[in-house]
Design a protein around this nucleic acid. Structure first.
Lengths: 150, 150
DNA sequence: TATAATTACATGTATATACATATATTGTTC
DNA sequence: GAACAATATATGTATATACATGTAATTATA
Protein backbone atom coordinates (compact mmCIF):
# COMPACT_ATOMS: atom_id res chain seq x y z
CA UNK A 1 0.00 0.00 0.00
CA UNK A 2 1.29 3.45 -0.85
CA UNK A 3 1.42 6.25 1.70
CA UNK A 4 -1.46 8.04 0.00
CA UNK A 5 -3.65 4.95 0.14
CA UNK A 6 -2.71 4.28 3.73
CA UNK A 7 -3.71 7.67 5.07
CA UNK A 8 -6.40 8.38 2.44
CA UNK A 9 -4.79 11.71 1.61
CA UNK A 10 -2.41 13.21 -0.88
CA UNK A 11 -2.48 16.75 0.40
CA UNK A 12 1.15 17.45 1.13
CA UNK A 13 2.57 20.94 1.24
CA UNK A 14 5.62 19.84 -0.74
CA UNK A 15 7.98 16.90 -1.18
CA UNK A 16 9.78 17.66 2.06
CA UNK A 17 6.54 17.59 4.00
CA UNK A 18 5.58 14.33 2.33
CA UNK A 19 8.99 12.87 3.14
CA UNK A 20 8.48 13.45 6.88
CA UNK A 21 5.11 11.69 6.85
CA UNK A 22 6.51 8.99 4.59
CA UNK A 23 9.35 8.24 7.00
CA UNK A 24 6.95 7.85 9.90
CA UNK A 25 4.74 5.59 7.81
CA UNK A 26 7.68 3.46 6.69
CA UNK A 27 8.98 3.18 10.25
CA UNK A 28 5.54 2.10 11.44
CA UNK A 29 5.34 -0.57 8.74
CA UNK A 30 8.79 -1.90 9.57
CA UNK A 31 8.10 -1.90 13.31
CA UNK A 32 4.74 -3.60 12.93
CA UNK A 33 6.28 -6.27 10.76
CA UNK A 34 9.10 -6.88 13.23
CA UNK A 35 6.77 -6.94 16.22
CA UNK A 36 4.61 -9.55 14.52
CA UNK A 37 7.62 -11.73 13.93
CA UNK A 38 8.88 -11.31 17.49
CA UNK A 39 5.55 -12.49 18.88
CA UNK A 40 6.65 -15.98 17.88
CA UNK A 41 9.37 -15.59 20.50
CA UNK A 42 7.20 -13.79 23.07
CA UNK A 43 9.40 -10.72 22.74
CA UNK A 44 8.53 -7.09 22.12
CA UNK A 45 10.70 -4.92 19.89
CA UNK A 46 12.30 -3.15 22.81
CA UNK A 47 12.94 -6.41 24.67
CA UNK A 48 14.67 -7.73 21.56
CA UNK A 49 16.74 -4.57 21.18
CA UNK A 50 17.94 -4.77 24.76
CA UNK A 51 18.84 -8.44 24.44
CA UNK A 52 20.81 -7.62 21.29
CA UNK A 53 22.71 -4.85 23.04
CA UNK A 54 23.51 -7.17 25.93
CA UNK A 55 24.73 -9.85 23.55
CA UNK A 56 27.03 -7.28 21.98
CA UNK A 57 28.94 -6.88 25.23
CA UNK A 58 28.52 -10.44 26.49
CA UNK A 59 29.91 -11.76 28.81
CA UNK A 60 30.56 -8.28 30.16
CA UNK A 61 27.33 -6.96 31.71
CA UNK A 62 26.12 -3.43 31.05
CA UNK A 63 24.59 -0.92 33.42
CA UNK A 64 21.20 0.64 32.76
CA UNK A 65 22.51 3.92 31.36
CA UNK A 66 24.87 2.17 28.94
CA UNK A 67 21.95 0.16 27.57
CA UNK A 68 19.82 3.30 27.28
CA UNK A 69 22.59 5.10 25.41
CA UNK A 70 22.51 2.43 22.71
CA UNK A 71 18.76 2.48 22.15
CA UNK A 72 17.15 4.51 19.39
CA UNK A 73 14.23 5.35 21.64
CA UNK A 74 16.04 6.94 24.52
CA UNK A 75 13.02 7.39 26.71
CA UNK A 76 12.34 3.71 26.82
CA UNK A 77 12.35 2.76 30.43
CA UNK A 78 15.20 0.30 30.68
CA UNK A 79 14.62 -0.74 34.32
CA UNK A 80 11.06 -1.79 33.57
CA UNK A 81 11.87 -3.59 30.36
CA UNK A 82 14.66 -5.36 32.26
CA UNK A 83 12.06 -6.37 34.88
CA UNK A 84 10.15 -8.26 32.22
CA UNK A 85 13.26 -9.88 30.79
CA UNK A 86 14.33 -10.91 34.27
CA UNK A 87 10.98 -12.54 35.00
CA UNK A 88 11.46 -14.61 31.84
CA UNK A 89 15.02 -15.40 33.01
CA UNK A 90 16.49 -13.95 29.82
CA UNK A 91 18.71 -11.58 31.79
CA UNK A 92 20.06 -11.41 35.31
CA UNK A 93 20.61 -8.30 37.31
CA UNK A 94 22.96 -7.43 40.17
CA UNK A 95 24.42 -4.32 41.74
CA UNK A 96 27.78 -3.18 40.42
CA UNK A 97 30.58 -3.85 42.91
CA UNK A 98 32.45 -0.78 41.67
CA UNK A 99 29.61 1.71 41.87
CA UNK A 100 26.71 0.54 43.90
CA UNK A 101 24.36 3.03 42.29
CA UNK A 102 24.66 1.04 39.07
CA UNK A 103 22.67 -2.08 38.30
CA UNK A 104 24.52 -4.42 35.98
CA UNK A 105 22.51 -6.49 33.56
CA UNK A 106 23.74 -9.60 31.80
CA UNK A 107 22.11 -11.81 29.21
CA UNK A 108 21.65 -15.43 30.32
CA UNK A 109 22.30 -18.56 28.22
CA UNK A 110 18.52 -18.85 27.78
CA UNK A 111 18.50 -15.24 26.59
CA UNK A 112 21.27 -15.93 24.10
CA UNK A 113 19.45 -18.94 22.73
CA UNK A 114 16.17 -17.12 22.29
CA UNK A 115 17.92 -14.11 20.80
CA UNK A 116 19.77 -16.24 18.26
CA UNK A 117 16.58 -17.89 17.10
CA UNK A 118 14.78 -14.55 16.86
CA UNK A 119 17.69 -12.91 15.06
CA UNK A 120 17.80 -15.61 12.44
CA UNK A 121 14.12 -15.12 11.68
CA UNK A 122 14.63 -11.36 11.74
CA UNK A 123 17.37 -11.40 9.14
CA UNK A 124 15.24 -13.41 6.77
CA UNK A 125 12.41 -10.94 7.33
CA UNK A 126 14.66 -7.94 6.73
CA UNK A 127 15.47 -9.15 3.27
CA UNK A 128 11.77 -9.42 2.61
CA UNK A 129 10.84 -6.01 4.03
CA UNK A 130 13.45 -3.91 2.30
CA UNK A 131 12.64 -4.17 -1.36
CA UNK A 132 15.79 -2.30 -2.43
CA UNK A 133 19.08 -3.08 -4.09
CA UNK A 134 22.21 -2.40 -2.08
CA UNK A 135 22.89 0.69 -4.19
CA UNK A 136 19.40 2.02 -3.58
CA UNK A 137 19.66 1.32 0.13
CA UNK A 138 22.97 3.19 0.21
CA UNK A 139 21.32 6.15 -1.47
CA UNK A 140 18.45 6.03 1.02
CA UNK A 141 20.96 5.99 3.88
CA UNK A 142 22.75 8.97 2.40
CA UNK A 143 19.51 10.97 2.09
CA UNK A 144 18.43 10.12 5.63
CA UNK A 145 21.83 11.10 7.01
CA UNK A 146 21.65 14.40 5.18
CA UNK A 147 18.10 15.05 6.30
CA UNK A 148 19.02 14.57 9.95
CA UNK A 149 22.14 16.69 9.90
CA UNK A 150 21.68 20.22 11.10
CA UNK B 1 24.08 13.20 15.31
CA UNK B 2 24.56 10.34 12.85
CA UNK B 3 22.83 6.99 13.26
CA UNK B 4 26.11 5.34 14.19
CA UNK B 5 26.79 7.87 16.93
CA UNK B 6 23.24 7.65 18.20
CA UNK B 7 23.24 3.90 18.73
CA UNK B 8 26.99 3.57 19.35
CA UNK B 9 27.25 0.89 16.67
CA UNK B 10 28.15 0.56 13.04
CA UNK B 11 27.69 -3.18 12.75
CA UNK B 12 25.12 -3.50 9.98
CA UNK B 13 24.76 -6.61 7.91
CA UNK B 14 24.47 -4.56 4.73
CA UNK B 15 23.04 -1.29 3.44
CA UNK B 16 19.51 -2.66 3.44
CA UNK B 17 19.76 -3.64 7.08
CA UNK B 18 21.18 -0.22 7.93
CA UNK B 19 18.36 1.46 6.00
CA UNK B 20 15.71 -0.23 8.18
CA UNK B 21 17.39 0.93 11.38
CA UNK B 22 18.00 4.34 9.85
CA UNK B 23 14.33 4.81 9.01
CA UNK B 24 13.30 3.98 12.56
CA UNK B 25 15.89 6.38 13.90
CA UNK B 26 14.81 9.17 11.54
CA UNK B 27 11.15 8.64 12.42
CA UNK B 28 11.99 8.79 16.11
CA UNK B 29 13.87 12.06 15.64
CA UNK B 30 11.03 13.59 13.65
CA UNK B 31 8.41 12.44 16.13
CA UNK B 32 10.37 13.64 19.14
CA UNK B 33 10.83 17.02 17.52
CA UNK B 34 7.15 17.31 16.69
CA UNK B 35 6.05 16.17 20.14
CA UNK B 36 8.25 18.80 21.74
CA UNK B 37 6.68 21.49 19.61
CA UNK B 38 3.14 20.26 20.33
CA UNK B 39 3.76 20.49 24.06
CA UNK B 40 3.38 24.24 23.65
CA UNK B 41 -0.21 23.54 22.69
CA UNK B 42 -0.79 20.78 25.27
CA UNK B 43 -1.30 18.29 22.45
CA UNK B 44 0.25 14.90 21.80
CA UNK B 45 1.15 13.81 18.29
CA UNK B 46 -1.87 11.55 18.01
CA UNK B 47 -4.24 14.18 19.36
CA UNK B 48 -2.90 16.58 16.74
CA UNK B 49 -3.31 14.01 13.98
CA UNK B 50 -6.90 13.35 14.92
CA UNK B 51 -7.72 17.05 15.05
CA UNK B 52 -6.16 17.47 11.61
CA UNK B 53 -8.24 14.63 10.20
CA UNK B 54 -11.39 16.12 11.69
CA UNK B 55 -10.58 19.52 10.25
CA UNK B 56 -10.21 17.87 6.84
CA UNK B 57 -13.87 16.85 6.87
CA UNK B 58 -15.22 19.79 8.87
CA UNK B 59 -18.06 20.61 9.33
CA UNK B 60 -19.00 17.01 8.51
CA UNK B 61 -18.21 14.85 11.55
CA UNK B 62 -16.43 11.50 11.19
CA UNK B 63 -17.10 8.22 12.94
CA UNK B 64 -14.39 6.42 14.89
CA UNK B 65 -13.52 3.90 12.18
CA UNK B 66 -13.16 6.62 9.53
CA UNK B 67 -10.72 8.46 11.73
CA UNK B 68 -8.78 5.27 12.42
CA UNK B 69 -8.58 4.50 8.71
CA UNK B 70 -6.75 7.80 8.12
CA UNK B 71 -4.16 7.36 10.86
CA UNK B 72 -0.70 5.99 10.16
CA UNK B 73 -0.73 4.11 13.45
CA UNK B 74 -3.85 2.04 13.01
CA UNK B 75 -3.84 0.54 16.44
CA UNK B 76 -4.11 3.90 18.10
CA UNK B 77 -7.16 3.77 20.23
CA UNK B 78 -9.36 6.46 18.76
CA UNK B 79 -12.12 6.32 21.41
CA UNK B 80 -9.65 7.01 24.19
CA UNK B 81 -7.79 9.75 22.37
CA UNK B 82 -11.18 11.29 21.61
CA UNK B 83 -11.97 11.12 25.34
CA UNK B 84 -9.01 13.38 26.04
CA UNK B 85 -9.88 15.78 23.24
CA UNK B 86 -13.46 15.92 24.48
CA UNK B 87 -12.37 16.76 28.03
CA UNK B 88 -10.43 19.67 26.58
CA UNK B 89 -13.52 20.64 24.55
CA UNK B 90 -11.57 20.40 21.30
CA UNK B 91 -14.05 17.91 19.84
CA UNK B 92 -17.65 16.96 20.53
CA UNK B 93 -19.10 13.51 20.23
CA UNK B 94 -22.62 12.24 19.57
CA UNK B 95 -24.24 9.04 18.32
CA UNK B 96 -24.92 8.85 14.60
CA UNK B 97 -28.62 9.20 13.81
CA UNK B 98 -28.21 6.88 10.81
CA UNK B 99 -26.38 4.05 12.53
CA UNK B 100 -26.56 4.18 16.26
CA UNK B 101 -23.54 1.93 16.60
CA UNK B 102 -21.40 4.76 15.26
CA UNK B 103 -20.13 7.64 17.33
CA UNK B 104 -19.66 10.80 15.30
CA UNK B 105 -16.87 13.14 16.27
CA UNK B 106 -16.64 16.77 15.23
CA UNK B 107 -13.95 19.37 15.85
CA UNK B 108 -15.15 22.41 17.82
CA UNK B 109 -14.30 26.06 17.09
CA UNK B 110 -11.83 25.91 20.00
CA UNK B 111 -10.30 22.83 18.38
CA UNK B 112 -9.99 24.59 15.05
CA UNK B 113 -8.29 27.58 16.67
CA UNK B 114 -5.79 25.49 18.58
CA UNK B 115 -5.13 23.33 15.54
CA UNK B 116 -4.45 26.34 13.33
CA UNK B 117 -1.95 27.76 15.77
CA UNK B 118 -0.20 24.40 16.16
CA UNK B 119 -0.17 23.79 12.41
CA UNK B 120 1.47 27.12 11.73
CA UNK B 121 4.26 26.32 14.17
CA UNK B 122 4.50 22.82 12.74
CA UNK B 123 5.02 24.00 9.19
CA UNK B 124 7.85 26.27 10.24
CA UNK B 125 9.38 23.35 12.13
CA UNK B 126 9.05 20.99 9.16
CA UNK B 127 11.22 23.27 7.05
CA UNK B 128 13.80 23.15 9.80
CA UNK B 129 13.71 19.38 10.31
CA UNK B 130 13.96 18.26 6.71
CA UNK B 131 17.35 19.44 5.53
CA UNK B 132 16.71 18.43 1.92
CA UNK B 133 16.05 20.13 -1.38
CA UNK B 134 12.74 19.39 -3.05
CA UNK B 135 14.54 17.16 -5.56
CA UNK B 136 16.24 15.21 -2.80
CA UNK B 137 12.98 14.87 -0.90
CA UNK B 138 11.31 13.57 -4.05
CA UNK B 139 14.07 11.00 -4.43
CA UNK B 140 13.66 9.97 -0.79
CA UNK B 141 9.93 9.56 -1.34
CA UNK B 142 10.56 7.43 -4.38
CA UNK B 143 12.94 5.15 -2.49
CA UNK B 144 10.56 4.78 0.45
CA UNK B 145 7.66 3.98 -1.87
CA UNK B 146 9.73 1.34 -3.62
CA UNK B 147 10.91 -0.14 -0.35
CA UNK B 148 7.35 -0.54 0.90
CA UNK B 149 5.85 -1.87 -2.29
CA UNK B 150 4.25 -5.35 -2.47
C1' DT C 1 35.59 15.84 56.48
C1' DA C 2 30.97 17.77 56.40
C1' DT C 3 27.99 19.52 53.12
C1' DA C 4 26.35 20.22 48.65
C1' DA C 5 25.89 18.79 44.01
C1' DT C 6 25.66 15.16 40.85
C1' DT C 7 24.73 10.65 39.18
C1' DA C 8 22.20 6.19 38.68
C1' DC C 9 18.38 3.93 39.16
C1' DA C 10 13.69 3.08 40.67
C1' DT C 11 9.07 4.44 40.81
C1' DG C 12 4.76 7.17 39.95
C1' DT C 13 1.49 9.15 36.59
C1' DA C 14 -0.44 10.20 32.09
C1' DT C 15 -0.73 8.88 27.47
C1' DA C 16 -0.28 5.70 23.71
C1' DT C 17 0.13 1.04 21.54
C1' DA C 18 -1.41 -3.73 20.85
C1' DC C 19 -4.69 -6.80 21.27
C1' DA C 20 -8.65 -9.36 23.45
C1' DT C 21 -13.24 -9.21 24.89
C1' DA C 22 -17.90 -7.19 25.86
C1' DT C 23 -22.07 -4.74 24.35
C1' DA C 24 -25.20 -2.63 21.38
C1' DT C 25 -26.85 -2.22 16.83
C1' DT C 26 -27.47 -3.58 12.18
C1' DG C 27 -27.68 -6.90 8.47
C1' DT C 28 -28.68 -11.62 6.80
C1' DT C 29 -30.90 -15.93 6.38
C1' DC C 30 -34.13 -19.21 7.11
C1' DG D 1 -39.81 -12.05 12.00
C1' DA D 2 -36.59 -14.91 14.96
C1' DA D 3 -32.05 -16.51 15.15
C1' DC D 4 -27.60 -15.79 13.80
C1' DA D 5 -23.68 -13.30 11.91
C1' DA D 6 -21.32 -9.10 11.24
C1' DT D 7 -20.14 -4.43 12.50
C1' DA D 8 -18.94 -0.31 15.53
C1' DT D 9 -17.43 1.14 19.53
C1' DA D 10 -16.13 0.77 24.30
C1' DT D 11 -13.45 -1.27 27.77
C1' DG D 12 -9.87 -4.25 30.04
C1' DT D 13 -5.00 -5.63 30.41
C1' DA D 14 -0.12 -5.66 29.34
C1' DT D 15 3.59 -3.15 27.57
C1' DA D 16 5.89 0.98 26.12
C1' DT D 17 6.70 6.07 25.96
C1' DA D 18 7.42 10.56 28.19
C1' DC D 19 8.54 12.84 31.91
C1' DA D 20 8.63 14.07 36.97
C1' DT D 21 10.05 12.82 41.42
C1' DG D 22 12.27 10.01 45.08
C1' DT D 23 16.30 7.59 47.05
C1' DA D 24 20.78 5.92 47.54
C1' DA D 25 25.53 6.31 46.34
C1' DT D 26 29.27 8.90 44.64
C1' DT D 27 31.84 13.05 43.61
C1' DA D 28 33.02 17.79 44.32
C1' DT D 29 33.82 21.55 47.23
C1' DA D 30 34.16 24.50 51.10
Amino acid sequence: MTLEEAIKSSKFKDQRHKALIHIMYAAYQVKTNINQLLKNYALTGEQYNILRILKGSHPTPLCVKDIASRLIERNSNVPRIADRLEIKKLVKRFPSPEDRRETLIQITPAGLNLLDAATQAMEAEHQHIANLTEAEAAQLNQLLAQMLQD
